[in-house]
Design a protein around this nucleic acid. Structure first.
Lengths: 256, 256
DNA sequence: CGCGGCATTGACTGGTTTCAATTATCGTGG
DNA sequence: CCACGATAATTGAAACCAGTCAATGCCGCG
């Protein structure tokens, strides 16, 4: 299973943005020039907290990161998961105050880029604003799909849908291997993202396993039957706004 | 109850953007110069549909608009409500293909601005990009809060939370009157937004009424006890990213 | 007056939570 | 190599919140 990323942070960023908006040489160079700092953070470490007024954005180089809201009584709702190439708090560029938390799920490598540097980049290459803006819009598209899941699907469909999403997102970053991919979140964390209890999620996983749709264990998700899984999830990949890549089949899902 | 908006579309847009980013005269003039067309649309009319590739954005001048996802079997999930001053599909500026629908809830007046014109505006006044980008980020913040509601609050809290949100959003546009505000969505539509059935929503409304928190009827929501309502909702207005306005009390909630 | 849309209520069902207990799994140190 | 503790996964039984189905009431309107 591919894991980790060996290039520099700006290379990863350039690769990510290149995925949707074709970069020219000047843009690519400007991105590669961005100054940034890298930190290795342990698991379950808050990167940004509710109420903070960040002066930098973070880019996930390696590991899993979650965005979550904390409610009273220690409950939490995980709003989204982020993997290598994602920029969880781009929004802090224009929203002063954090209304939620961002934390590592696993030990992770995070690159930090100052807002000032990004604004400078935007002045040099105004066309990159659109690319970044687009990233935040895709984030919002993921939120919308989660709302639909929580509002109108029951547990089985919710879990199936999240698995489809996380598999395809990792696939587009070359992190999958056949129909398997890393799945770092524990059952309790998946439950917190899906609006379920870990007890019930566990039962749903058993159902999915017994029906021959997916197996989850040891931090690895394996999709046994994509078509059935997608059917249970009523999954339509449109909301991912990924360019090109076809939906996986046994032929297409082999390592890239 | 204030209802409707009498100025021009661009005036409303300028007023909206002025709320967060102070506009200078050039910016204001550029906005007021934007060419746009106005359409009066009947209730329950799709403005943009799943799969469309819009070449214009729409601005709500008057009425209620909803964003929704359609599932199989005629089910739908309403993702968000929009009122005067909101720009529901700003996202289409950078996401080619619609992954959901936008439709009027009530008879509405909608202004349409071509993407090209917005891009021209951005070239003239690059500082306005941030203001618009920010609008989409606030939209995303609303989504996040909805996810939290659907995932971790039960019906009573969900309903209370939505009422708090819609009241404050309308208040910031001067559409409230004391602790009352328009509430155009029918019970079935509120239920579709909250992941409930209309039957259960109806029971929740009765509970809220009997507890003396809110009354809903005739398209008007009246908040009887803000503090208690906010407590039931665990409402924290941070996510609205509104500037200035204090949370209402019996003193502050009088007509502006 | 009768019709259609919307709100309301009752009885019953069922998906999910809650509480509690048991069983893997894994890293660590003796 | 095994004992140990901590974390995570799994299972059972009972309670409950919300959904489903079905019927009634309300009200404006042609």
């Amino acid at each position: 299973m591919p894991n980790g990323y060996n290039g520099t942070g700006t290379e990863l960023l350039a690769r990510k943005l290149d995925g949707c908006v074709r970069l020219n040489e000047a843009e690519r160079a400007a991105i590669l020039d961005l100054p940034y700092t890298v930190r290795n953070l342990p698991a379950r470490h808050d990167i940004v907290r509710f109420g903070d007024q960040p002066s930098q954005c973070c880019l996930v180089l390696q590991g899993w990161v979650s965005r979550y809201a904390a409610l009273s009584e220690g409950e939490r709702q995980i709003l989204s998961f982020y993997i290598a190439g994602d920029i969880p708090d781009l929004q802090s560029l224009h929203l002063e105050r954090m209304d939620h938390h961002i934390a590592t799920l696993t030990a992770s490598t995070i690159a930090f880029v100052a807002h000032d540097e990004l604004h400078r980049l935007f002045r040099r290459c105004p066309s990159l604003i659109g690319a970044m803006w687009r990233e935040t819009l895709i984030d919002a598209a993921h939120y919308r799909e989660r709302i639909t899941s929580l509002g109108r699907r029951q547990a089985l469909g919710r879990v199936a849908h999240l698995f489809c999403e996380l598999y395809l997102r990792q696939r587009s970053m070359g992190l999958t291997s056949g129909l398997s991919c890393p799945m770092a979140p524990k059952q309790a964390e998946l439950a917190d993202a899906l609006g379920l209890t870990s007890v019930h999620l566990n039962r749903v996983l058993r159902t999915l396993r017994m029906r021959g749709l997916v197996t989850l264990g040891g931090g690895v998700l394996t999709i046994e039957d994509w078509d059935e899984l997608a059917a249970v999830a009523e999954f339509d990949p449109t909301f991912l706004h990924q360019t090109g890549l076809p939906v996986p089949t046994h032929e297409t899902a082999v390592p890239l």
